[in-house]
């Protein structure tokens, strides 16, 4: 319990330090956050002063930071300069799509990816291992936007099997739950496949290496000597001990899937947090950028904490370290 409390405190401190660093780094970027408001029609000096007051841009950086942290504690990240709407609202609008896509990809990576990694280890050096290695590395080396475009071209434009963009079709008013769910799933397939194809290689490689290491251990040989079936040896002994190191990946993947799918979101017009963050960065929309930064930081810290906790649950030695 002490270990968990210490680890949680460490996570909070890490998050606070990261947010402070992000806050000052973002404000040191060249560019005027109010400029986008005067793109079409110029603002008078008085209007600029009003806006600076409204967004607290007339305050010293220290005061801005204090106000930001105070707001963040209350869950209030202010109002987006670009959209003129509360940041929390904008983030919450996009979060479900991001989580749906991210969770689907994580699920694929940590089920299919791990299973394939195990198969590779079991067939080390044989054709299956080589084919899977080639395929996964090809996916890893393929730019996600290119793969996405190709999948759209084939499955949407040519075959008309799946939608080309968006996460839902308009015009399903009054449709049943099943129709709506199927519509969402159809929209999810291509972006999830694209992201999974370019990312599954990591979990496969990690799992393969960890599994190979585990298969060399004496307790595996002992298990075999006790007459256990190959399945029991593989999944009950070797895989279980190989799992903790693979779980570290989970912590690394979580933040990437929260805000790191910018290209895939662009190609599939999947309006998630990635594109929101990219747009906020281009427009120097400080409140929105910090709102998404808080989420990304939380994802990093939580992911890391969760993987550590899982690691500790599976391997008590980790708690002692």
């Amino acid at each position: 319990m002490n270990w968990l409390a210490r680890r949680a405190l460490q996570a909070v401190i890490t998050a606070l330090m990261a947010l402070a660093l992000l806050f000052f780094l973002i404000r040191s970027l060249p560019g005027d956050p109010l400029a986008v408001l005067s793109e079409d029609r110029p603002l008078t000096s008085e209007q600029v002063r009003d806006l600076q007051r409204r967004y607290q841009l007339d305050q010293p950086l220290g005061a801005q930071f204090t106000a930001f942290m105070g707001g963040a504690v209350r869950g209030d990240f202010g109002t987006s300069i670009q959209y003129g709407r509360p940041v929390r609202q904008l983030v919450l609008e996009r979060l479900p799509r991001t989580l749906l896509l991210g969770a689907t990809v994580l699920l694929i990576n940590f089920t299919l990816g791990l299973w394939l990694g195990v198969q590779q280890a079991l067939h080390r050096g044989r054709p299956l291992d080589r084919i899977l290695t080639t395929l996964s590395l090809t996916g890893y080396a393929t730019p996600s936007f290119w793969l996405g475009l190709m999948l759209v071209l084939v499955f949407a434009v040519r075959l008309h099997w799946l939608p080309a963009a968006g996460s839902q079709d308009p015009g399903l008013d009054g449709a049943g739950v099943l129709t709506v769910v199927l519509d969402r799933l159809r929209h999810l397939i291509l972006p999830a496949l694209t992201l999974a194809a370019v990312s599954i290689a990591s979990s496969m490689r990690y799992q393969r290496a960890a599994m190979l290491e585990a298969l060399r251990q004496p307790y595996v040989a002992a298990a075999r000597a006790r007459g256990l079936t190959e399945g029991q040896v593989t999944w009950g002994h070797a895989w279980r001990s190989a799992l903790p190191s693979v779980l570290t990946l989970f912590g690394l993947w979580l933040p990437i899937l929260v805000v790191g799918a910018v290209f895939v979101e662009q190609v599939f017009a999947w309006q998630g947090l990635g594109s929101l963050t990219a747009g906020a960065a281009a427009a120097r929309d400080y409140p929105l950028l910090m709102g998404t930064a808080v989420l990304a930081t939380a994802a990093v810290v939580t992911g890391s904490l969760v993987s550590d906790v899982l690691h500790a649950l599976l391997d008590p030695r980790a708690r002692a370290e």
Partner: peptide
């Protein structure tokens, strides 16, 4: 009867939507 605006920032995605009837 209905006017619908679909928000699609990428030019390529807009074209794909058009070509697929979206």
């Amino acid at each position: 009867e209905q006017m619908v605006w679909r928000f699609t920032t990428s030019q390529e995605s807009r074209l794909n939507l058009l070509l697929t009837g979206g």
